[in-house]
Computed example of a mutant assay.
Amino acid sequence: MAEISAVKEAWEIRQRFKPEIWFSAPGAKHYENRYYANHHHSFVNISVTGEACACRCDHCNGKLLQSMVGTPTPLEMRRVVDQLLDKDCRGILVSGGANSQGEVPLLAFMDSIAYASQKGLKVLVHSGIISRETALGLKAAGVDQVLLDVIGDQDTIHQVYHLNQRPEDYLRAMLFCREADLNIAPHVVIGLHYGQIRGEMKALEMIREAWPETIVLVILTPSCGTAMEGLQPPNLADVGEVIAKARLTNPNIPITLGCARPSGQYKRQVEILAVDCGVNGMAYPDEETVIYARSKGLQTMFTEECCSLIARNV
């Protein structure tokens, strides 16, 4: 496992926050146990490109887009928003496939995004690399938060994401968002380089420069039918080292364990480890994790919003 001293220190830093842990269960995925059951349309993922993606990353190959509601035109997005409002939806995550520059093409959808916000929906945007123009547009549209994957290793960007970008481009994207006064929740995919730890620590260093509201950590979970199918997940000790590092270097910023992580026993082990390392929130926890968090003296709170939104609660 991760070095015991680092985990212990991370847990001690966690005591600066309220003795609560927020468990997130958005309606995009069914979640039910003796502690909580979510609602199907409470929070819905939308793709502005349908299933199209120019990158075809080695761990995804566009598969994740298949689980989203496709809205390939601004008019279709408005229609879907109206339908979701009729189903008591509370929020949407707007995403989509990236273009050859690694950016989700959002500019044509700004009016529709603003429409969703004006109708009272919580609006999050998973943008990919983002330009200053897009950041300013999202601010004007009233989005609640921007989610960006941050990669700290150039070989990973080239080999996994198939992009000719650099780590500095991800830092620049975060700073564009901060210039626009956007709430940001950068994501770090642990083990993204074929299960290896390569650019995660560099990504955390860049994130510190952007002073985000929340940091979201997820773990490589290759989709079936991709170049990484069947790949072993990153070593638990390495995962723990990254989570502890995130907590130690960001003592005042909420940290969550996001949706993506391998299933089964690995999932349960990494969730326990994340609790020990002092995360403030977690998406779709195993029932055993809820019990363990309570045994650590934490009050368990449930929400159907994305885990990246917990900052206002901690």
Rank of each mutant, 00 (worst) to 15 (best):
D88E: 08
G278C: 03
Q66T: 13
D88C: 09
V290Q: 00
D58I: 09
L64A: 15
G70D: 01
F23G: 00
G264R: 10
M1R: 11
V48D: 11
C53F: 11
I13Y: 08
I46L: 06
L148W: 05
S263C: 09
V160T: 09
N313F: 13
G297N: 02
E20I: 12
R56Q: 15
E51A: 14
N45H: 08
G225C: 10
G199Y: 13
M282A: 07
E20R: 11
M174Q: 13
Q154L: 09
Q145V: 12
S131M: 05
G264Q: 05
R132E: 15
L231W: 00
L163C: 04
H40K: 14
L148E: 12
P26N: 02
S127Q: 10
P186C: 05
A141D: 06
A52K: 14
P167Q: 11
V80T: 11
C224R: 08
L231I: 11
R178K: 15
D276S: 00
L147C: 10
P285Q: 01
A246Q: 00
C53T: 03
G142P: 03
K296H: 11
L64H: 13
E213I: 05
F109M: 01
D88Y: 12
K87D: 01
G264T: 10
C55A: 15
H126Y: 11
L107T: 03
A54E: 07
Q154S: 12
V7T: 12
A180M: 11
R172D: 08
